[in-house]
Design a protein around this nucleic acid. Sequence first.
RNA 1: GGGGGAAUGUCCCGAGCGGCAAAGGGGGCGGACUGUAAAUCCGCUGGCUAUGCCUUCGUAGGUUCGAGUCCUACUUCCCCCA
Length: 417
Amino acid sequence: MSTPKSEFLKTLTERGFIHQCTDLAALDERLSLGPVAAYIGFDATADSLHIGSLVQIMTLRWLQKCGHKPVVLIGGGTSQIGDPSFRDASRPLLDGELIARNAAGLRQVFSRYLTFGDGPTDAVTVDNADWLDPLRYLPFLRHFGTHFTINRMLSFDSVRQRLEREQPLTLLEFNYMVLQAFDFLELSRHHACVLQMGGSDQWGNIVNGIELARRIDQRQLFGLTTPLLTTSTGAKMGKTASGAVWLNAEKLSPYEFWQFWRNVEDDDVARFLRLFTELPLDEVHRLGQLAGQEINEAKQILAMEATRLAHGEEAARDAAETARRTFEAGEHAAGLPSIDLSRAELDSGVTVAQLLVQAGLSASKSEARRLVLNNGARLNGSLVQDADTPVTAGDLTKGALKLTVGKKRHVLVHVSD
RNA sequence: GGGGGAAUGUCCCGAGCGGCAAAGGGGGCGGACUGUAAAUCCGCUGGCUAUGCCUUCGUAGGUUCGAGUCCUACUUCCCCCA
């Protein structure tokens, strides 16, 4: 298809968000007619979302910007099952209380990226537990079971791999796609939702919903998937030294979030600017041309823009300033990750190794010792010679000291009385 | 129902004549080189009150001075025959 007419598809196409679409031309037509409600489902498997979901979140954000209505589906019901798509083993089952807590965390993340409310293009949140929990087994099977053939369900890549490896797929998990299909039907009926988006692994689940609505309601729905993101070296996106790149400030500070983007590989910069910022494409293009030393400018802009979206303008500026003071001026910038140590603990004799563990920079004292042996640990900028050296009040500057592991991981230790 | 294989370091893959904290990769971390990048090279990659002690090879027992390694039972998975 040539250039889409609709603002939304045009943007998504240009910025590299589209992997597959069930009927791009018809969807484009529909989007050009007026506001459209579209949804993406998020299972409540953790109390925050991480960068792996950011592409999806950005598509919802663009949707809203282009004058349409985002519907955020929290999978309070489906989380009780666990999506088996492209997985070799089933997931641990989550209990209701945990799911509820996770769902609350998810809502918090979305509130930063979308505008919620009652207006025609305001985002809304729905929870599929509301309609899945009350379902009765036999009536459900009789109404909807006849529209799914096992033959077809088995043909989807998302489950076929599992079967080919002869890994067990339980009836429970196998039902996941049926329930997700039902979600789409439900949302099309009660929220006028005509489009479901998602990662490329969701293709099978999405198509099932479209088929179901076509058979039962004779309604045309659409599906659109985004590409699976890997870094240019082929690694899975979204890992840092300390774990996943969470979008929630309580789980990953804005500074660390900023650092993640700042450290992206050169070859990913242009692509990430298109996907994870809202900079105009000609600006993205200009930044993408930068090479060598200069590409660091583009990385700082990427970090700034991505952090602004996730944590707000002020937090983004603070993160940038903390990075500048730490890396360019070599100071003890206040915005660094920090831990507290009581004066009593200090006086009773704390070694560097113990402090490294407390700061989360080493998993164990043994690891801390090895780190020191490899010249990998610094105290206030100077190399630590012996991991068992006690830290003393003399190491403090303004009541704090700085531990550094490698070149990038800094933690401030505040000592209080 | 019968026969044959497999399970290894809590990230993964994988070698392991009865002396094993256990080869080799990948990944991760650190160092050198750089640009807070990549590639490359080097080192490290169970814990601790640390020249020693403790915990690790699917689970539970057994043989042995000593078991990842041998025996028995069990669990799960794979292959072949019915």
